[in-house]
Computed example of a mutant assay.
Amino acid sequence: HARRKIYDVHIETKSPAAAEALEMIARLFAVEAGVKGRPPAERVAARQEAELRAFLDATLAKISGKSDFAKAIRYATSRWTALTRYVDDGRLEMTNNAAERAIRPLTLGRKNYLFAGSDEGGRRAAIMYTL
């Protein structure tokens, strides 16, 4: 979500600073791709995040505090501990995309179940889902 807010600002304003922040984030993802599947100790050794935080702090000091970019930066920095927890623990993934993908069918199904049409339709759907 933190990257998405910065991305939205970049698309809306074409801000060079937002573009630079996105490039830094892309480098973090590239590092992560390079260590995927490696032992936890190797993953920790390769990970870094201090450059991005320093850039965000410096940029926040230069821009209007009421801008959307400032809001996006504050969103990221206020969640910094959670966002960077993966840096010090090689067992953690950088994103929760795998978990999001795993629960997506359940979430979509839950919404679909609301529109079975009737109690009998709901029972028939339940029978079909168990097959």
Rank of each mutant, 00 (worst) to 15 (best):
F29I: 01
L28V: 08
E93M: 08
E100Y: 03
S15Y: 01
S67N: 01
K66S: 07
L108I: 12
A126V: 13
R91G: 15
L60D: 06
A98I: 10
G121N: 02
I63P: 04
T13C: 05
Y86Q: 03
E23S: 15
L56P: 06
E12R: 14
K36T: 11
A82G: 15
A76L: 11
A99Q: 06
R3G: 09
L60V: 00
E120L: 12
R124D: 09
S78K: 11
S64L: 03
R27C: 08
A50S: 13
R124E: 12
H1M: 15
E23H: 12
M94H: 07
A50C: 02
A72S: 07
L114H: 05
M128C: 10
I103S: 07
T107I: 11
E32K: 01
Y86W: 08
V87T: 08
R85T: 10
A125T: 07
D88F: 14
R124K: 15
R110W: 00
A21Y: 03
S15D: 11
W80K: 05
F115W: 10
K71N: 12
E93Q: 12
R91C: 14
L83T: 08
R43Q: 05
E49L: 09
L106Y: 12
I6R: 03
L131G: 15
E12F: 08
R53D: 07
V9C: 11
S64V: 04
A26P: 00
A45R: 09
G90L: 02
V87I: 14
A58N: 10
A70G: 00
A30Y: 11
R27K: 14
A61P: 01
A116M: 08
R124A: 12
K71Y: 06
I73D: 06
I25E: 01
R101H: 06
G122R: 13
L22E: 09
R124L: 13
K36A: 15
R53C: 05
R47M: 04
F55C: 01
E51K: 14
A98G: 00
K62D: 12
N97P: 10
A61I: 00
R4F: 13
L83Q: 10
F115H: 14
I6Q: 03
Y86H: 10
G109F: 11
K62Y: 06
